[in-house]
């Protein structure tokens, strides 16, 4: 479904990603781990087309389409969803209006009629239950005055509304207590179908107890330096990243 080849990307002229290769097939969950500054967020931002990042080399295809040629909103319509690390507050724009605009924009892209207000509100009510999102929250402005946990739950709620085929969870676990983490992860698992694949970016093993990855990648200085199964995450939890760095240093010397 997603194929990244030799991806180089920079921000403000500084190269962050230095030749990423990654293939994610339908239904697979890939975890991406690494220290701060390794390029994890850059990769996720490049995938969703953030204008601040410049792709200098390489390609990304998504279901056979050249992803890099698509605008951010078109990527969204194609089924890519990102749960933001720090969801922005948008005062004055109600969650209802925001979500309706998003859902109907996607329907239009897919050649479907827009939902009526009644249909839309019904769907909204149903999906809210998945992440136990209070109805009060959906009446407020987007993310405004939400706690950290509420913001992350709201992200998963939006995922439920937009039914993506590929989800990026960018440090969705940061700032969450155990209960909130469970609710968010359960929500994600309920939404995941056989077809849905995901890229889960995290520092910690903790989230991976709830969202079981098929593959674990370690990103170091703009490159994927190690790939393994779920056991790799446990090993990192245990030993940190230094041994991987050391391993790589040895390899480079050879």
């Amino acid at each position: 479904m997603l194929e990244i080849k030799n991806l180089h990307a920079s921000i403000n002229g500084k190269e962050i990603l230095k030749g990423i290769n990654l293939t994610i097939n339908d239904g697979e969950i890939h975890a991406l781990m690494g220290q701060n500054g390794a390029g994890k967020s850059t990769l996720s931002n490049v995938l969703v087309g953030h204008p601040a990042y410049e792709v200098t080399q390489g390609s990304i295809t998504f279901n056979g389409k050249d992803l890099l040629a698509l605008k951010p909103e078109e990527r969204s319509h194609e089924g890519i969803f990102m749960s933001f690390q720090a969801p922005v507050e948008i005062p004055g724009v109600s969650m209802v209006n925001f979500m309706r605009a998003a859902v109907n924009a996607k329907r239009k892209y897919l050649g479907k009629e827009p939902l009526t207000a009644g249909e839309f509100l019904k769907i909204m009510r149903e999906k809210r239950k998945i992440v136990e999102l209070d109805s009060k929250l959906s009446n407020r402005s987007v993310n405004e005055g939400f706690s950290g946990g509420e913001k992350k739950r709201n992200e998963i709620f939006q995922m439920a509304m937009l039914e993506p085929t590929f989800a990026i969870l960018d440090e969705t676990d940061s700032g969450l207590d155990v209960d909130a983490l469970r609710i968010v992860a359960d929500g994600f698992n309920k939404l995941k179908t056989e077809k849905t694949s995901a890229l889960v970016i995290t520092h910690y093993q903790r989230l991976l107890d709830y969202i079981k990855p098929d593959f674990v990648h370690v990103l170091l200085d703009g490159n994927i330096v190690k790939t393994g199964g779920p056991e790799l995450a446990l090993e990192i939890e245990d030993r940190g990243f230094d041994w991987i760095k050391a391993e790589r240093a040895v390899k480079n010397e050879e």
Binding site: K71, S76, I90, G92, F98, A101, A102, V103, A105
Partner: peptide, 20 residues
């Protein structure tokens, strides 16, 4: 950008922010 990631076009996102 947040709105565009959710599939809302740039023009529409601008309008929504202006109404707000």
């Amino acid at each position: 950008f947040y709105m565009r990631q959710r599939g809302i076009s740039l023009d529409e996102a601008k309008l929504l922010l202006k109404f707000a």
